[in-house]
């Protein structure tokens, strides 16, 4: 069964027909040719497909496209302004926060979303004082980024990149 939906992807409204079973990830990758979000597990177990969905980081492999008609999606591609990279992306390059690059767009989107969450005062599992505003030390970055697996093991460099990009 097909449905027609609209998505605003990286600033552009796109209209597309999807199977009601189509995930947001497949709608982006297979229907719209937006391949910045990656499919690493297709079951919410790796974070490679993370985008900013209506302003928040979210996995797209477990979201049905039809349920997100009208949504605003920003991928890692959309975080860059043409040739100008987002500060977090720039920091990933400088700190070598990537190797094979497959988890990278998801890491980048997750990092950008995470920094907003910290700004909003959200705590994490490792936040000592639940009441107060969190302080973004390395332990906090690691915990908050743990939804993004990297098999190449770029973790220490990713943390360094986020530290740099957060400044």
């Amino acid at each position: 069964m097909d449905a027609s939906i609209r998505l605003r992807v990286d600033g552009q409204w796109r209209t597309l027909d999807v199977d009601t079973r189509t995930t947001l990830l497949d709608a982006l990758r297979e229907r719209l040719g937006v391949t910045s979000p990656k499919k690493g597990c297709d079951h919410g177990q790796c974070g490679s497909c993370t985008v900013l969905l209506d302003g928040r980081r979210a996995v797209t492999c477990l979201a049905l496209a039809v349920a997100h008609d009208g949504a605003e999606i920003v991928t890692a591609e959309g975080l860059a302004d043409g040739e100008d990279l987002h500060p977090v992306q720039r920091a990933f390059l400088e700190q070598d926060g990537l190797q094979c690059g497959y988890c990278t767009p998801g890491q980048v989107c997750s990092a950008v979303g995470m920094l907003e969450e910290v700004k909003a005062g959200w705590p994490s599992q490792v936040t000592e004082d639940l009441a107060g505003p969190p302080e973004l030390d390395d332990e906090e970055i690691r915990e908050r980024m743990s939804g993004n697996l990297c098999r190449c093991g770029a973790y220490p460099n990713i943390v360094a990149a986020i530290r740099q990009g957060a400044r």
Binding site: R57, L130, G147
Partner: peptide, 22 residues
């Protein structure tokens, strides 16, 4: 966070942030 820290902590230990956002 103030009145039910056990609940906040339990939630924050579950899944991942990009799953909890959904």
């Amino acid at each position: 966070r103030q009145h039910y820290p056990v609940l906040a902590q339990a939630l924050l230990s579950g899944a991942s942030p990009q799953l909890r956002n959904l």
